[in-house]
Amino acid sequence: MSSNQYFNHEGPWSEATDSLMCTDTGDWRSKRPVVDKEKCIFCGFCAIYCPIQVMEMTADSCFEPDLDFCKGCGICAKECPKGAITMVSEGEFVS
């Protein structure tokens, strides 16, 4: 369980010095969503339907997953109306 760098407030059950618990759910993934920025029409469906809410808006009007936590469920790719997201095997990214 990694210490969380994303929150710096405490939970109701935690000690004042503790941060929130956080699991590296990105490690679970066998496929990752890759967004084709040219195809993306910035509708936001991928963001609202992502169960863990990790599709983040980018400065150039697009959405990108936070790969530290994306579980690779594939909902975003399935729900994208433009087919702008492809699920690519993690093996492709091993250097």
């Binding site: 994303y6 699991t23 759910t25 990105g26 993934r29 169960p51 863990i52 936590f69 579980k71």
Partner: peptide, 10 residues
């Protein structure tokens, strides 16, 4: 927290 232990696609 971002990484919580629900199954993928839950």
């Amino acid at each position: 927290s971002k990484g919580v232990s629900f199954c993928p696609g839950c």
